[in-house]
Design a protein around this nucleic acid. Structure first.
Lengths: 161, 161
DNA sequence: GCGTTATCGTTCGACATCGAATGAATTACC
DNA sequence: GGTAATTCATTCGATGTCGAACGATAACGC
């Protein structure tokens, strides 16, 4: 196998370790940075922002799908929606044809909040990748997408059918 | 600026958005995957594992430095160390020359745990990047490293001197 | 048709994490 | 040299997050 070194008597793949470690490290720094620099003023944490963003992009969404898109457990989404609904940024309603489902959508003021916030967010995204060439950005995105697909496949096979 | 598109009347840099979003998404999946597949048996969560790993690599470390290396707040590290110390995996002692400092190191059984766990961890790291070529891995690692450096510089300038 | 399963969203309890407050130890200042 | 300011790690309170348990609704089997 490529990239295997011996460290302290153990075979170690340093390259894969560095990549995984850096992904995780970057994620934490990015989250902290955005929460402090942009989300704090709106009094939103990362997951609440992503929730609003998903609703903005997809329009109305069932909670189950919304939880998956936002990357949180459905119980977590429930409490996020409680908070957002209390602030009148989103609205919940039951699907009358399938009364187990709950459909969520932005209110007018919810749409106002996210459309005011997103440009700042995107500007900051652009800023933190400004030292990368377009090619580097695309290559990194593609690489991470491959990793994601691999994990999802592994977990999917392991757990389900 | 490169990569700017118009979406719903807003200028959006889709490439930077996709990269940031994927980094965060991958981080969550990786964390969940490793905690379920490897760390659950040892009854350790991610941060506790990273803490042990840092001590294994660096040898003894002051708590302040250890918190930074592990990527957690110092208060979080305190509770992690309480747990690890209760399990006799690490040891704390005050530095006698500078009695404010606390120095942490692995016990024998702590070293045993991490040295038994790491090969599995690294094997899984290698597995989730197996679809990437060595060049892709290095390119992605370098790209993320650049992002990290950019954020740290931004935050450092903003907050400190 | 009616009980059994399956599938929703929500609630609940446990816990990881953080920031601010605290106390101990050291340094700086006059 | 003694007081003030600084710098540690820890504790404490608040909160975000998850998984399991729950109740409601729908689909299935016979």
């Amino acid at each position: 196998m490529l990239g295997e070194k011996r460290v302290a008597g153990l075979r170690v793949n340093l390259e894969s370790m560095a990549l995984v470690s850096n992904i995780h490290r970057a994620s934490g720094f990015i989250r902290d940075h955005f929460e402090r620099a942009i989300l704090k003023d709106a009094d939103l944490h990362w997951s609440a922002f992503v929730t609003l963003w998903c609703l903005w992009i997809y329009g109305e969404l069932e909670t189950r799908r919304l939880a998956a898109e936002a990357g949180v457990a459905k119980s977590t989404l429930s409490s996020i929606l409680n908070m957002l609904e209390a602030r009148k940024l989103v609205r919940r309603r039951t699907n009358e044809l399938e009364r187990r489902l709950v459909i969520v959508n932005l209110t007018a003021s919810g749409a106002e909040v996210i459309s005011g916030l997103f440009p700042k967010f995107n500007a900051e995204e652009t800023r933190i990748v400004e030292r990368l060439s377009p090619k580097q950005i695309q290559a990194a995105t593609e690489a991470i997408r491959l990793i994601l697909a691999t994990i999802i496949e592994l977990d999917g096979i392991a757990e389900d059918e």
